[in-house]
């Protein structure tokens, strides 16, 4: 089955990014495809490579990057939401790309199931 995922909240502040990541990992482990994760609202803050958590904490941004690399998950950051919040190509972490809201709609059309994680 093809899953599309939406993340509406930033990392660390809210659990939604963690929940979404663990859901993706479990879905992939079960043989499903997670074709795309779309980051919207403050969720765009998941994409900055300037993030530097304390050493004993999880690195949420790197975790997404690794998931993208290992499982070809398309990590898309909404351009309008990103520009509002200072997320640009210059500070974009590996595996993320900035694109339009059309990518969210396309994901809804093309995936079998869409799950939203937010506040």
């Amino acid at each position: 089955m093809k899953f599309g995922i939406v993340v509406n909240e930033g990392p660390y502040q809210h659990q939604s990014s963690d929940s979404a990541y663990l859901f993706c990992k479990a879905a992939i482990a079960k043989g499903h495809n997670v074709d795309r994760v779309f980051f919207y609202h403050d969720g765009v803050n998941n994409a900055t490579k300037l993030t530097e958590p304390p050493q004993d904490d999880r690195n949420i941004v790197n975790r997404w990057s690794k998931l993208a690399e290992e499982h070809k998950v398309d990590l898309v950051v909404c351009v309008a939401a990103a520009m509002r919040r200072g997320i640009r190509d210059e500070n974009l972490a590996t595996g993320f790309r900035i694109s339009g809201l059309g990518q969210l709609v396309e994901m809804g059309v093309q995936s079998d199931r869409l799950v939203v994680f937010g506040d």
Binding site: Y40, A80, L101, G102, L104, V105, V109
Partner: peptide
């Protein structure tokens, strides 16, 4: 921002 998605969806 929800409204912004709605407008884009219309184009699809």
């Amino acid at each position: 921002e929800s409204l912004e998605v709605v407008l884009i969806t219309a184009a699809f």
